[in-house]
Nucleic acid binder design. Structure first.
Lengths: 357, 357
DNA sequence: TCCATCGATTTGAACGATCAAAACGGTTGG
DNA sequence: CCAACCGTTTTGATCGTTCAAATCGATGGA
C-alpha cells in the first residue's frame, strides 16, 4: 500500500493533466475555477505534497535559508542567538521556507562553506549575524549575487576612527535589520536620570567595535541632553563579569565618583553591581540584552525585539526571493542596485525595569 | 561565463561517461585506479559538487536531519538547547548531513509538521529533545519507519508511579542518548557531604517528570550511602527563581534545618541561594545544567556534556542511515527490530565546583 | 466562409543525478 | 575454437516537477 502520491497521481484522480495540477499550485489564474476546485479536492483527498527536490531541480530554488549557529561565546549573551533563531524558523516556515544551520570557526571558514552550501544544496539565501568592521562575508555574497540579509548594520569604514581604513574598506549597501543600540542606552540613561542620578558612567568595549561605539553614543547623547558632562565617565574593556567589576571599581575611585552605571552588556552589568560604592551600598546598574542572567538577578536591562527582527529579516528576503527573482532573475540582487530605504530596518529596543536601577 | 558544472561537464573533461564519474564518488572500488585519479583531478579542477536535489530525486535520501527548536522557555535553561544544536550542526556536517530547524507549539503540532517535512523535503531523520511521559511523537515516527534518535530517555510507563498507566503506555525501544542526571546530583551531594554538610536537602520538581525523578533519586541514593536519612528533606515545585527561594525557606523552617541544597536546575538553585539560613549566612547550593547564570553568579553546578551528546546522536543516526538502509531499506528501522545496547547511550555529567558550595 | 484570436488544457523536453542492464576487450576452460 | 566469465566502462531509463510550445474548441470580424 501507500504508493507515494505524485503530481501524476493527482492528475489522474482529477482527470486532468500534470501541468494543470502544477498550474493550480503555481499559477491558479490560468485554470478555470471549476477545474481548480476539482484539482484542489483531489490534492486534499490524496494528501499530495509537491516534492521539493523535483521542484528544485527544475526551478533552481530550494526554499532553504542558511543561518550560522555560533559556538555560544561566554554563554551569557549566547541565548540571544537562540531566540533569534526561533523567530527566524517560525516566520520562515510561515513564508514557506526552512532554516538550515551551518557552523564556521571564522569568517574565512564561513566563506569556504558558502561554496559547499550553494554548490550542493542550492540555498536560496543567507542570514548573517555578528557583522563587524571589514566583514568579508557580505562582499563575497554580494559579488556572486547571492541574496542575503544581515542582522546588524554594515559597520563600514565611515564609522571607523579617522585615519584608519580597514580591509574591504567600503562595503556595498545591502538589506539589513538591526536594533538601535544607542536608543537603548539612551533610554537606560534617561531612566537613571529620572531616578535622581547625576553622575552616570558608561562601561563598554574598546573603541572600534561598531556595536559598542553605538551604545556608548546613546549614553553620551542622553547625558549631554540633560546638560551634564560625560567626559571621563566611560571605560572600555573586554566583555565579562570580572572585567565589569574592575571597570566599575576604577570609575568609583574617581574624585567625583558615579552613582550609576549604564553597561553595554549584562555580563558587564552584573560585574558592576558587585562593586560597592565608597560610602557603601550598591550602585544602580543597567545591562543590555535582557538575558536570563538579568532576569534571574533582577537587573534592569535593554531588551532587543528579537522575534520582530527575525521576522523582518525573513520579510526582506522573501521580498527579493518571491517577487523580483521571478521577474528578472539576473538583476534582482545585482550588486549595482541601490536598495531603497525600506530594505534597511532599525528597530527600537525596550527598557525592562527591575530592581537594580 | 560560469556554466554550472554538472556531472556531464566533469565526464567530458575527464573523457569518461557520466556513470563513471558517479561511480568514482559513490562506488570507487568499481573504477580502475588510473581512471579514478583522472576523474578526481577533473572534479578538483572544475570545482564540481554533486547537486543534492538531483541525487535526492533518484535515491530518495536528502541528507537532511530535522531538529525542533523550542521557544526558549524561561531563558535560563534555554541555552542548553543552543549548545546542543551547535554540537549537532558540527558533527552532522562532518558526516555529510545538514540540520534543518522546525518549530511546533506542542506535540500534536509537531506530529502535524512531520507530514510536511517528510512529504515535501524527504527528511532522512529526526532528533527529538525534551522527551516525556506518554510521548506521542516517538510512536508516530516509529510507526512509519522514520529513523530518529531522542536526546533524553523514553520515560515510559515502567517509570511511572504504580497504578498509573499513561496514554501511549508502552513506548517501543529506540536509539537514544541521555545524560545520567542521577549521577550528577549524586556527585553534587557527595561534594557537599565532603564539605562537611550533614543535612542536605533536595529541591526539584513534582513527582511524575522523568528527568526530575531521576535527579531526586541520585540525591537520595548518595544521602543513603552516607548513612543519613533523606526523609522529609525534599520538596517539589515548578521551575523558577522565586519558586526555588520559597522552597528553600520552607525547608529552612524545619526543626532541624538543612545547611545545603542540591537543586534540579540553576533557576531553583539561584532562588535557594537567596534564602538565608536561620542563624544567618547563605546556605551551600548546587544547581544543574551549568548555565550562564551559574557561571556568572559563581554557583556550583552539574554540567552536561552537550557536545558529546550531540555527537552521539549523529553517530547513532548515521549508523542507521549510512549502512543499514543501503542494505535493506525496509527492515532497517522496522519497529519490530530490537536495538542493541550500543544504541542507548548514557553519558556522565561533570560537577563544576564554584564558590556556592 | 475562413482565418485570426483567445482562454484553457495538454504534450514533449529538460533539470542532474543514480540504477539497471548492456557492451566491451581480455582471459580462461572445456 | 567457442562459450563462459571477469573487470571495467557505457548506454538507456527514470525520479517528479516545471518550462515552452502545441493543441483544442469557441468566438468574432472581415
Amino acid at each position: 500500500m501507500a504508493e507515494k502520491t505524485t503530481i501524476t497521481t493527482v492528475a489522474q484522480h482529477a482527470r486532468v493533466s500534470r501541468q494543470t495540477v502544477s498550474n493550480v499550485l503555481n499559477a491558479p489564474h490560468l485554470v478555470r475555477v471549476e477545474t481548480r476546485v476539482r484539482v484542489l479536492a483531489s490534492i486534499e483527498e490524496l494528501g499530495y505534497r509537491a516534492n521539493q527536490a523535483a521542484r528544485q531541480m527544475r526551478t533552481g530554488r530550494s526554499r532553504l535559508i542558511a543561518v550560522r549557529i555560533e559556538p555560544a561565546r561566554d554563554g551569557i549573551n549566547g541565548s540571544v542567538l537562540d531566540r533569534f533563531l526561533h523567530g527566524l524558523t517560525e516566520t520562515a516556515s510561515a513564508a514557506g521556507y526552512r532554516i538550515v544551520l551551518y557552523t564556521a570557526a571564522d569568517d574565512e571558514g564561513e566563506v569556504a562553506t558558502y561554496g559547499d552550501l550553494l554548490g550542493s544544496y542550492d540555498l536560496d539565501a543567507f542570514v548573517l549575524t555578528s557583522t563587524h568592521h571589514g566583514d568579508i562575508r557580505t562582499a563575497w555574497l554580494a559579488g556572486r549575487g547571492v541574496p542575503f540579509v544581515t542582522f546588524g548594520r554594515p559597520w563600514g569604514s565611515t564609522e571607523t576612527p579617522a585615519g584608519r581604513s580597514g580591509p574591504g574598506a567600503s562595503p556595498r549597501h545591502h538589506p539589513w535589520v538591526d536594533v538601535d543600540g544607542a536608543a537603548g542606552t539612551a533610554a537606560a540613561t534617561r531612566h537613571l536620570l529620572a531616578a535622581g542620578h547625576h553622575r552616570i558612567a558608561f562601561i563598554g568595549w574598546p573603541e572600534g567595535s561598531g556595536v559598542g561605539d553605538d551604545r556608548r553614543a546613546g549614553w553620551r547623547a542622553a547625558i549631554r541632553a540633560a546638560g551634564l558632562d560625560p567626559v571621563g565617565l566611560h571605560l572600555g574593556t573586554s566583555d565579562g563579569v570580572a572585567e565589569g567589576e574592575r571597570a566599575a571599581r576604577d570609575l568609583l575611585a574617581l574624585p567625583d565618583p558615579p552613582t550609576a552605571f549604564v553597561c553595554a552588556s549584562d555580563s558587564l552589568g552584573l560585574g558592576a553591581r558587585q562593586a560597592s560604592k565608597p560610602g557603601g551600598g550598591q550602585p544602580a546598574v543597567t545591562g543590555f540584552d535582557d538575558t536570563a542572567v538579568a532576569q534571574a538577578t533582577g537587573m534592569t536591562s535593554v531588551s532587543q525585539p528579537l522575534a520582530e527582527a527575525a521576522g523582518r529579516c525573513v520579510q526582506l528576503l522573501t521580498r527579493v526571493l518571491d517577487s523580483d527573482r521571478a521577474i528578472d532573475s539576473d538583476r534582482a540582487f545585482d550588486s549595482d542596485r541601490v536598495p531603497d530605504a525600506a530594505e534597511q530596518i532599525l528597530l527600537t529596543p525596550r527598557l525592562v525595569v527591575r530592581s537594580s536601577g
